[in-house]
Design a protein around this nucleic acid. Structure first.
Lengths: 338, 338
DNA sequence: TTATTTACTGGAAACGTTTGCGTAAATAAA
DNA sequence: TTTATTTACGCAAACGTTTCCAGTAAATAA
């Protein structure tokens, strides 16, 4: 091990005290310009890097934020991460990522970790299986500021960034109805997710507005197993052959619908029209091009990070309950053509 | 601030010394079973979490690995991250992610950070713009074990995980030639990336094997701006209308080719056949379905993480130069049909 | 009975940083 | 001249762990 270059070795080499070297590197006003220059020169020459852990321990600040999401292999979340990382970098913050794989137990374990003071703030999209939120309340008790994005947790009072999910659900359904659909199925990932509920309510309201009945049997809850989803959708389409429209609440369920239709030989959009929430850049290149409700994923990540970092740098540990709602956009494409 | 629960407070409450409490929580053999139980019980009750920074500082070990990649909004990398995270979780390690956006300056800045001892090991896919590798050598001098994956850096001697890029390039090109193409363009992201070179060499070798000339003008270097890529490809297709096959070395260039053909009204695969490296799950749903060379992205991430964590836990700071090469798979689909 | 081991436990140093406080010299004010 | 103030720096404590080094008491061996 080469003798690590730290404040002590710098101080010795410069014949100064550790305190002075530390202050010089922080550009403190209580060290002379000449000394600052000497210190900086040697630090640069020896390639000194402060020990992040010592600094974090002493200052009780880690310059790190955590991001807890279900998956990273998902266009929405990877775009959001891009936004988050952008903001973090501007503030000289580091980003630790944890994946729950939509598993409640993992989410709890991760939350447990996080009470150790490893991060200064948390950005989170809750796992779909989560019902109990004691682990999140514990984080708040530990003075960890939290910002939820997209999959928010209503039971915890803090800042939240979402999109207009109710309205989007309404518009998506309405879009199908206006395209001539009369039997619209709704595929969602989990009924107890707040955004799932909102989209569902929008769906139900649109049906009602068009004088159509809400049929519980047309609502399908999918999971994380893509193959299984495709099978479930296929079974639904077989069981209810009158279905002529599908509103998929998340991207991979729209994809699953394509596969199901392919297997059943149902043509899109002639027999079944499909609209889905999605951040696929290549929705337009699908066969047929997929009509999407597209969330401003990058901006959601950005905004959530901005709110969090503002709180962190101001040492506001508990964020006032606030909701920022961004607008999704509907891109009509071939999959819902008349 | 609620009085933080730490070793000291636990020790006081239990009328024990800090040392004993610490040892009890680590299940040391030199503390009695009864004491261990008492300590554990109170720790659990008070929800004690050890301060990660104090521990890292003292043990000179952070239980954290860094991942430096160009983008996260990319199927290959997000799958790789899934693999990495899986292994890290099994070893109780944390994962910090840094994005270079393929920018050399950012990569250098990130490397600079990383010498601060914040992480115990590094997984890296180098930025396409990187020419000089002093920043990486510095990391090695700082005793940071590095494993490169996919976009490896040949100039740095350490462990590397890649796929059979030369062979894949050869097979991809051969596939087009066997489908009848005579003028095959090659789109790549950067000529000075080692994997880019390998794929390119495979491309050139396949041409030669089929008695076709290598034409430099048919090789196009793309960037990160998708719109610009599509324009460049379009211009190439206009300039050289005889092009009847495209081998895209990365996913988004294949997508760009689709867009370019769409704009020019060239039909795939009748006029132009396209094959591309890609981890798109929905390649089969594109219009037409895209023929792909698919890398085992998840496994690459997994294997790289396994190698790294083995080195980290064995305190091997400098890894022996080794290469692990996994196999890519070619999925023939409609975009290269005769 | 004495010597030696074994089983627990505690004191204190160390990791590298930041920062409150003290102080000497230099300067300004009285 | 004396007295305040400023400037520039050092000492040492603190952050919460881990771990080396002893130390005590009981158990075993001689």
């Amino acid at each position: 091990m080469p003798p690590a270059v730290n404040l002590k070795s710098l101080a010795q080499a410069l014949n100064l005290s550790i305190a002075t070297v530390s202050r010089a590197l922080q550009d403190s006003h209580e060290v002379s310009p000449q000394t600052k220059e000497r210190v900086r020169a040697l630090a640069a020459e020896l390639n000194y890097q402060p020990n992040a852990y010592a600094s974090s321990l002493r200052r009780n600040l880690s310059k790190t934020i955590g991001v807890v999401i279900p998956e990273v292999n998902n266009h929405f979340f990877s775009l959001a991460i891009n936004g988050i990382e952008e903001v973090a970098r501007q503030h000289d913050f580091h980003v630790i990522i944890y994946l729950t794989h939509d598993d409640y137990a993992r989410e709890v374990a991760i939350a447990q970790y996080l009470t150790g003071g490893r991060i200064d703030g948390l950005l989170m999209s809750v796992a779909s299986g989560s019902q109990d939120f004691a682990h999140l309340h514990k984080l708040q008790e530990n003075k960890l500021p939290i910002v939820f994005f997209d999959r928010v947790c209503e039971e915890v009072s803090t800042a939240k960034v979402t999109t207009n999910d109710y309205e989007s659900g309404f518009r998506a359904t309405q879009h199908l109805l206006e395209a001539g659909c009369r039997h619209v199925a709704h595929l969602l990932v989990s009924g107890n997710l707040s955004i799932g509920r909102s989209r569902m309510q929008g769906y139900a309201a649109a049906l009602q507005a068009h004088g159509l009945p809400y049929d519980e049997d047309l609502v399908l809850s999918g999971g994380n197993d893509q193959e299984r989803n495709a099978t479930l959708i296929k079974e639904l389409l077989e069981r209810r052959p009158e279905i002529d429209g599908i509103f998929a609440s998340v991207e991979h369920l729209a994809i699953g619908s394509y596969h199901a239709c392919q297997r059943l030989g149902r043509s899109i959009p002639e027999q079944v029209k499909i609209i889905g929430f999605s951040n696929l850049e290549i929705a337009a290149l699908l066969n047929p091009a997929l009509t999407t409700i597209t969330q401003p994923a990058y901006d959601i990540g950005r905004e959530a990070a901005v709110i969090l970092l503002r709180a962190v740098t101001r040492k506001k540990s508990v964020l006032p309950a606030q909701s920022l709602m961004l607008e999704s956009e509907l891109f009509a494409r071939a999959s819902t053509a008349r």
